[in-house]
Every structure is written in C-alpha cells, then in structure tokens.
Amino acid sequence: MKDDPTRKPETTSGVSRRDFMKISGVGVALPLVLGPKMVEAAGEEVAVHGPGKVPVALTVNGKKLSAQLEPRVTLLDALRDNFDLTGAKRVCDRGVCGACTVLMDGKTVYACAVLAIDAQGKNITTIEGLAKGDALTPVMQAFVAHDAQQCGFCTPGFIVATTHFLEQHPNPNAEDIRRGLSGNYCRCGTYNGIRAVALAKPEGRAS
C-alpha cells in the first residue's frame, strides 16, 4: 500500500472491515491533488486530465467511491483493483465475453469497454450491488436452483445481464433470449440452465 496510495478507496458509506483496512491512512498517504491543466478551445477553457493519475469519483452500488487513477484505467479494472469489487471478471478484456457486465444507469454494459474516468456521474451497479446483504436475489436463487453455473466465472456477468433482461422482457420467448442474452459467453456450458432461469421468469431485482 505504501507504494501505491491510489489503491485505497474512499467510501462514504457501507464500509466493510476490509474497506476500513484499506482506507486507514488515506490522509497521510494521498499526495496533494493538483487541479487539471486547462486549455483553450473555441473560446472556452477545457480541463485536460492526465496522462498521470487524476481523482476519479464513481457511484457504485449507491456508494461514492473515489481513487487516483490514470485516464487509461477501465471501469472494470477500477472496480476490481481499486475497490475490491471482484464480482465482475476480466476474461476477454475486449468487450466480447460479458463476464464484466455491470449496469450503468440501469443498462448493461461491458465494464472493460468503459473508462473509469468516463463513468463518473453514472450510477454503476455490480453483482455485489444487486443483492442486499447475504440474501440472494430471485434471479440468483434461480441460477442456483437450475444449476445454471459450473465454474462460476461467467456467472456474475450472466446474472447481471439476466436480471436486466428480465426487467425488459418479463415474458421472454426464444427470440428475446437469442437477442437479449447473447452478450455473455460460458465455457463450461451452462446455457441450458440459464435459459431455464430466463423462462422461469424469477421476478425482481431486489433480494
């Protein structure tokens, strides 16, 4: 931690024990944050951020989180490396596989295809934010009941995608599933169970 103060997130609520361990010492370790460089374009001053680390503030699962990040850090890497929200997985890292699926302002996106700095001002929901506490959401329960997971690495992304999909398609048919759940890949081959989950129509996002 001494080497990289930016790994410490600041949170305003819901501080877990682990979060607390990471936060402690923020005050002494964070370097003085300098304002961004300003350039003039079309008669207005525009702030230029980076290429070094800049303060990035995100709203994730209803919490304000912030870190010092280079502009090149993706939302996925910020979630995983800086905020220890590791439910979203890095698998292809090229916006194909869906393992990093999160909700951004209520819509599914690949967190690997979004820059963290560009996600500021958006409401981000990760798999960790779908369930309240230890209780599983109906969709998660359905994944367990239909055994729609094996190794589990694609599962969080698939559950975020399925949750959003069922909100949009409360009574999905095969064509809806084809278009709506094809953004996630599974290697173990759990699609039969996931299709059963979608057709079973578990209701509601909340646990």
Partner: peptide
C-alpha cells in the same frame, strides 16, 4: 497513457 478531455460543445 493519454490525456482525457470532455468538451461540451
């Protein structure tokens, strides 16, 4: 690394 700007017009 790169610089990042977000103009509004």
């Amino acid at each position: 690394p790169f610089e990042y700007v977000s103009p509004t017009n």
